[in-house]
């Protein structure tokens, strides 16, 4: 069985743990850097990206998280997690992990009163996925190696680049675990490849 960690500094951690367990993997809350050695894949949950970045800096998580990604272990970022993964952020000079070749815009759909649910088609996952957008970002630009998985109103809201997966919406807030399952399968594959190469 593979082990998936959920970065537990702040945000919707419990919900991700539940959907990982429902998808047949072991789930752990990651609060300390050393725990990264014990997991096969990592979820960066939804929350406040500004707050998460402060906490990532305070606990020296930034470099270890980048290295985790560079070692080709899968990372799945949802909402704030997507912002953490991006190489560029509109109107902002600081970027976070910079692992995915894309430009993202924060709070791109407006404030909380504009938050919404919509049905999406997600390439390779589902064609009737109920996606929950909360003060959500979207992806403005993707690099040539980034695969677009879903769009809403012409804005890119889900993408994949090698071991990295991201959504602007919150799959953890519904009972539909198909995206979590998709990620767990990615983690399984990557673990197999890493074991073979050793």
């Amino acid at each position: 069985m593979v082990t998936v960690g959920v970065l537990g500094l702040q945000g919707a951690v419990r919900e991700h743990i539940r959907s990982i367990e429902a998808s047949g993997a072991r789930a752990v809350v990651v609060k300390k850097v050393a725990q990264l050695d014990d997991i096969d894949g990592l979820i960066l949950p939804g929350g406040e990206s500004t707050t998460m970045r402060r906490l990532i800096d305070q606990y020296g998580f930034l470099e270890p998280l980048r290295q985790f990604g560079q070692s080709k272990k899968p990372i799945f970022g949802t909402c704030a997690g997507l912002i953490l993964l991006a190489k560029e952020i509109t109107n902002q000079s600081t970027v976070h992990l910079g692992l995915m070749d894309m430009t993202v815009t924060r709070n791109a759909f407006g404030r909380q009163k504009d938050s919404f649910e919509a049905t999406l088609a997600i390439d390779g996952v589902a064609d009737d996925y109920n996606a929950v957008f909360i003060r959500a970002p979207y992806i403005e630009r993707v690099g040539e190696h980034v695969k677009v998985l879903a769009t809403y109103d012409e804005a890119i809201v889900a993408a994949e680049e090698g071991p990295f997966l991201c959504t602007a919406f919150h799959p953890e807030l519904t009972e539909d675990h198909r995206l979590a399952h998709y990620f767990v399968e990615k983690v399984k594959e990557s673990k197999k490849l890493l074991q073979e190469s050793q």
Partner: peptide, 21 residues
């Protein structure tokens, strides 16, 4: 179909604040 102001969207916003000040 697009829905704003649903329970899920409103409660979900608070879920994102968890563990915070």
């Amino acid at each position: 179909m697009v829905n704003v102001g649903t329970d899920r969207v409103k409660r979900g916003m608070a879920e994102m604040q968890k563990g915070g000040v």
